[in-house]
Design a protein around this nucleic acid. Structure first.
Lengths: 258, 258
DNA sequence: AATTTATTTAGTAAATATTACAAAATAGAA
DNA sequence: TTCTATTTTGTAATATTTACTAAATAAATT
């Protein structure tokens, strides 16, 4: 929990430690098995849900700030992170549902028009991907809930966050098509089934189980290990790992996966 | 020309009209024939060249601000514009070469640490593409030159603008691969040679003259017109235009061109 | 120890797409 | 009419993708 003194200091003096007028919002995608989810938080003072977000410390790079925000919400550090778009419409943060009385009750402060939090803010959107089973969602200073929603059943979200989710998903899928993103989302050693399942979940479509790995192998991205994983009463799958050199080259120069 | 009074007002009161801490930088690509160029400006007070940039008016959307900036530098409005990345390293705007004396001489102001222009700024990068022959480059308030450079012979640039140029080019080429960008850069009616040449210039590589148009035609993106264009002592090429419906669908859903 | 089960993996034929090149078409100039 | 430069169509060779089949095999069951 955050103390009222902490909250008060953030509201009154935050602009000394953070860059005003700029925020970061994170579309944190979670997958597990065949389900793709997104992490949302419920702000205490407005009705709808929001993407987790925050401000940028004056000493931080953008990606470091995004990392911090994602770690605070999920408990997981050093996740794969990518910018997808920056949002800056003058009226993007308008809402009719701000509960002024509740704000005063919780913070003890009547916010003024001069406060740094009130002025127009431009938000840099990042997306990240993680196995949601490994996360421990935690609300932030201004919210009282933080949880995963199926990507097909997102509740009403505030501000321009619906557009953000759409753009994040679209960019993530284009990236997935061009770059071997998997490195950041699979354990060091994994089976062909696991990477196949990951791609199906993220892309939201079926990929032929027999043909899918061939592309990756043809491109030299995967290295077959002699180890196998024994799970269940059936042929044990080989373990693979990414071939670092080919992987980095593909990340840098781009490839085309299906 | 800008008067000293105008410059003074911008320095002292700009934060009332513009969103502080956020700027826009534009990688304006120009093509003509087989040459790809980029528009740079020479700031009066620092040594290297820079991407054209500016601040966002408090009433503007990001894309509207970018449009204004591009129009002010090139004379051309409503160009094709796309965000490519936002840059926010805390030390991104550091330079050793700021000429303080010259600044004072030109503006009559000793800039203080409290001035809105001095504080940390996060910059949203946009790229655009145009036929450079149609442009009339014009320096801005703080610069005395504005001109086109061959993409392979960019001079020393300041700040993180070298990285910006690299990122802009890379994003533009990925977009070109996924979306039929041509609509915004060709006259309404054009020949197959013209669109072929545009793609070769932007991608920086040769595309088979015979095979290239087949893809576009197969995808139903082009509509053959009965008109022809007579240029020179050889077979006159047919004119084509984009098939609006298929084009919009491709823009929305993405396709794969080569 | 043989059989069954579930799944991985290799293999392949057919369909499709790409590439490289050749040839035909044609508008205007000579 | 012939020549020139370029557009446009055609095609054979090659490569890739797709859909499907069959073999392999680890563990469970009989």
């Amino acid at each position: 929990m955050y103390t009222q003194a902490e909250i008060k200091d953030f509201i009154l003096n935050g602009h000394l430690h953070y860059v005003p007028h700029v925020s970061i919002d994170c579309a944190i995608f979670g997958y597990h098995g065949q389900q793709l989810k997104i992490l949302l938080i419920k702000n205490k003072f407005i009705k709808g849900w929001c993407l987790p977000g925050g401000y940028i410390k004056r000493t931080e790079t953008l990606v470091k700030a995004a990392n911090r925000i994602v770690k605070e919400r999920t408990g997981i550090g050093n996740l794969f992170l990518q910018q997808f778009k920056t949002f800056g419409d003058p009226d993007r943060a308008k809402t009719k549902d701000f509960d002024e009385e509740k704000w005063f009750e919780k913070t003890g402060i009547r916010i003024t028009k001069k406060n740094w939090l009130i002025d127009q803010t431009i938000s840099v959107g990042f997306y990240s991907i993680t196995d949601f089973e490994k996360s421990v969602p935690k609300p932030d200073l201004m919210s009282d809930e933080c949880k995963w929603f199926d990507i097909d059943h997102v509740p009403r979200v505030e501000f321009d966050h619906k557009e953000m989710i759409r753009e994040a998903l679209q960019t993530m899928r284009i990236h997935l098509y061009h770059y071997p993103i998997g490195y950041n989302m699979l354990p060091e050693k994994f089976t062909l089934s696991e990477i196949h399942c990951l791609y199906e979940t993220l892309l939201g479509k079926k990929l032929d189980i027999s043909n899918f790995p061939k592309k990756l192998i043809t491109l030299g991205l995967l290295k077959k290990l002699s180890e196998k994983r024994s799970i269940g009463a059936h042929r044990a799958p080989h373990l693979y790992k990414f071939e670092k050199a080919a992987y980095d080259k593909a990340l840098k120069e781009g490839v085309v996966l299906s």
